Deep mutational scan, measured.
Amino acid sequence: TLFEALYDYEARTEDDLSFHKGEKFQILNSSEGDWWEVRSLTTGETGYIPSPYLAPV
């Protein structure tokens, strides 16, 4: 399942991933609570992002 960003987000740590509203992601790991490890389909980068900022496509 692909997810889309509902809002912009600016990374706060080196493990976070900055992204823009509308960017699409592949979920790599969603078992860590509200922070999911994802791969951006736009940039190819991986990192953690807050799951409340995402919605299924």
Rank of each mutant, 00 (worst) to 15 (best):
G47D: 00
L41T: 07
F19M: 08
Y7C: 14
V57L: 11
S40Y: 03
T46M: 08
E37P: 02
T42Q: 10
Y9A: 02
G33Q: 11
A11L: 02
F3W: 15
E14N: 12
A55P: 03
S40L: 06
I49W: 00
E4C: 09
E45W: 10
T1H: 11
T13H: 14
E4I: 15
P56S: 07
D8L: 03
E10I: 14
L41K: 03
T13Y: 15
Y9M: 04
G22V: 00
K24G: 02
E23C: 06
G33I: 10
F25E: 00
E10P: 05
V57K: 03
E45F: 11
K24Q: 13
I49H: 01
V38R: 00
F3A: 05
A11S: 13
L2N: 04
R12I: 11
P50T: 05
S30W: 13
Y48N: 06
D8S: 09
K24P: 03
R12D: 10
Y9F: 08
P52L: 15
P56W: 06
I49V: 15
P52D: 15
R39V: 09
E45R: 15
D16T: 15
S40K: 14
R12H: 10
K21N: 03
D15W: 15
V57N: 05
G22M: 02
L54D: 02
E37D: 02
L6Q: 07
G47Q: 03
E14H: 12
W36R: 01
G33S: 12
L17S: 02
Y53T: 04
S40E: 02
E23I: 04
S31D: 12
T43F: 02
T43E: 01
T1Y: 12
N29R: 08
E4D: 02
F19V: 07
K21D: 01
N29I: 05
K21P: 02
E14A: 13
D34K: 09
V57E: 07
Q26Y: 14
L17E: 01
F3L: 05
E10A: 11
G47V: 03
K24D: 01
G44C: 09
V57T: 08
P56G: 05
I49T: 03
L6S: 04
Y7L: 10
H20Y: 14
H20N: 10
L17A: 03
F3D: 00
T42I: 09
D15E: 12
E23A: 06
P50Q: 11
E45K: 15
R12N: 10
S18E: 03
T46P: 01
Q26W: 14
E10G: 06
P52G: 15
S30I: 10
R39W: 06
E10S: 11
A5K: 00
K24W: 12
T1M: 14
G47I: 03
S51N: 08
W36I: 06
R39Y: 10
A5W: 01
A55N: 07
W35H: 08
S18D: 04
W35S: 07
L28S: 01
K21Q: 08
G33H: 11
T43R: 04
L6D: 02
T42G: 07
E23N: 06
W35R: 15
V57Q: 06
D15H: 15
G33R: 12
L54Q: 03
S51A: 14
Q26E: 13
K24C: 07
S30D: 13
E14D: 13
L6V: 08
S31T: 12
R39D: 00
L17P: 03
S31F: 09
D34W: 14
G44A: 04
W36G: 00
R39K: 11
S30V: 12
Y48D: 01
E4R: 07
A5N: 01
G44S: 05
N29H: 07
E23T: 07
K24I: 15
G22I: 00
I49L: 06
G22T: 02
G47A: 04
A55L: 08
L54N: 03
L41A: 05
D15V: 14
Y53P: 01
L41H: 05
A5C: 04
T13I: 06
V38P: 00
D8G: 06
H20W: 09
D34I: 14
A55I: 13
R39F: 08
W35I: 12
L41E: 07
E32L: 14
P52M: 15
T46F: 06
L54W: 04
E37W: 15
G22E: 01
I49G: 04
L28K: 02
F25P: 00
F3Y: 14
G22S: 04
Y48E: 01
Y48A: 04
F19K: 00
Q26I: 15
L2E: 06
A55E: 07
L54I: 10
P56L: 09
T42V: 10
D8F: 04
T1F: 12
G22Y: 05
T13S: 13
W36L: 06
E10Y: 10
F19P: 00
G22P: 00
G47W: 04
Y53K: 04
E32Y: 12
S31G: 11
E32A: 13
G44R: 03
F19E: 00
T46W: 07
A5I: 03
S51Q: 07
V38I: 02
Y7T: 08
T46L: 07
E23P: 00
A11K: 10
T46D: 03
T13N: 14
S51V: 10
V38N: 00
P50G: 05
S18T: 09
E37F: 15
P56D: 05
Y53W: 10
V57M: 09
E37S: 08
V38Y: 03
E37H: 14
W36K: 02
E45P: 00
R12G: 09
F19T: 04
G22W: 05
I27R: 07
E37R: 12
T46C: 08
R39H: 05
Q26R: 08
E32C: 13
F3N: 00
G44V: 01
Y48P: 01
F19S: 02
Y9R: 06
L17I: 12
E14K: 12
K24Y: 12
W35Y: 11
G47T: 03
T13A: 12
E45D: 09
I27C: 05
D15F: 15
T43H: 03
P52N: 15
D8I: 02
R12A: 12
S40I: 06
Y53E: 02
